[in-house]
């Protein structure tokens, strides 16, 4: 019936609008829901989300060992050539075999778009996104970083 459809349509419209207004009304009366971070004021107590992408760092454990095998998967995954891995060959003292390892993990912060593709590409979980985000410096060369610490070596057992 035409009239029935018409009235049903009007009531449906009013109901859906009321649903929307209930939501905004809830937010209006519940100020605890506000998610704005008043950043420079709350710098000490700033709570960043877990998955916030600040910059790429390499994970080192307490023995100054990392999990990077120098496979360059991250370098290949990077869309804008942010990562450059310089490899070298370590000689195993016992067997005398040569083994590929990283010499320098170069990270160009100034080129990085924080897309997270390198972290997803890494087969050993050697790199991760840090939560730091105050990156401004006065000299552009300071943005080119070496991610592996001095004297660090690959953790035993990571292939």
């Amino acid at each position: 019936m035409f009239l029935k459809e018409y009235i049903k349509e009007v009531f449906g419209a009013v109901k859906s609008l009321a649903t929307g207004m209930r939501r905004t009304g809830y937010y209006f009366t519940h100020h605890k829901e506000i998610i704005t971070q008043q950043y420079p004021d709350n710098r000490d107590t700033l709570q960043l989300p877990e998955r916030f992408r600040g910059e790429v760092v390499m994970i080192h454990d307490e023995n100054n060992e990392h999990a990077c095998t120098g496979c360059t998967a991250c370098e290949l995954a990077c869309p804008n050539a942010t990562i450059k891995i310089v490899t070298k060959f370590d000689v195993d003292e016992e067997t005398g075999k040569k083994k590929k390892a990283i010499d320098t993990f170069v990270y160009h912060l100034e080129l990085c778009t924080f897309c997270n593709l390198c972290i997803e590409a890494c087969p050993t979980g050697a790199i991760k996104m840090d939560q730091t985000f105050e990156h401004s410096v006065f000299d552009r060369s300071k943005l080119t970083k070496k991610l592996n610490h001095d004297g660090s070596k690959i953790r035993a057992g990571v292939e």
Partner: peptide, 10 residues
């Protein structure tokens, strides 16, 4: 202010 609170802003 009303718009801010309704959009979960300050």
């Amino acid at each position: 202010k009303v718009s801010a609170y309704m959009q979960v802003r300050l």
